[in-house]
């Protein structure tokens, strides 16, 4: 699993890390039952605090992408299938937005609006 973070970004590290896992899910690189690498391993590898890695995993648990179980670590749930479906829809959405010159902020605002209604 490829994880990327940029400490210079204004987005908190744990959110970047969670986004990285999500991206792997939407690219179809994760399957139900796959185990994410241990938080300690991720922390050492990316040179971040282990609590940051754990917080990212908790965020993913809260949205239902993984189960956190003592001794088993973070296990990908069946919801991963929806992520890969969205992973196909989103590039199409972004492509049509770009085509008509709609920027990322406008598109996010439109998505937020849709959720709000």
């Amino acid at each position: 699993m490829l994880l990327r973070i940029d400490p210079a970004s204004s987005v908190p590290l744990f959110e970047q890390l969670a986004a990285s896992v999500r991206a792997e899910a939407s690219r179809g690189n994760l399957r139900e039952g796959d185990r994410l690498p241990a938080a300690r391993e991720v922390a050492v590898s990316l040179d971040i605090n282990v609590h940051t890695a754990l917080r990212a995993y908790q965020l993913l648990r809260d949205e239902g992408l993984v189960d956190l179980r003592r001794g088993r670590g973070a296990v990908v749930t069946d919801r991963v299938a929806h992520y890969s479906e969205l992973g196909e829809a989103i590039p199409r959405l972004v492509a049509s937005a770009k085509e008509v010159g709609v920027g990322v902020q406008t598109l996010t605002a439109m998505i937020r609006q849709e959720y709000g209604s």
């Binding site: 699993m1 490829l2 994880l3 990327r4 973070i5 940029d6 400490p7 210079a8 185990r35 690498p37 391993e41 991720v42 590898s45 990316l46 040179d47 971040i48």
Partner: peptide, 13 residues
């Protein structure tokens, strides 16, 4: 391609 300062890790069993 990594941005300056960007960190990346690939882990697999």
């Amino acid at each position: 391609a990594l941005a300056p300062g960007e960190r990346a890790s690939w882990i697999r069993t």
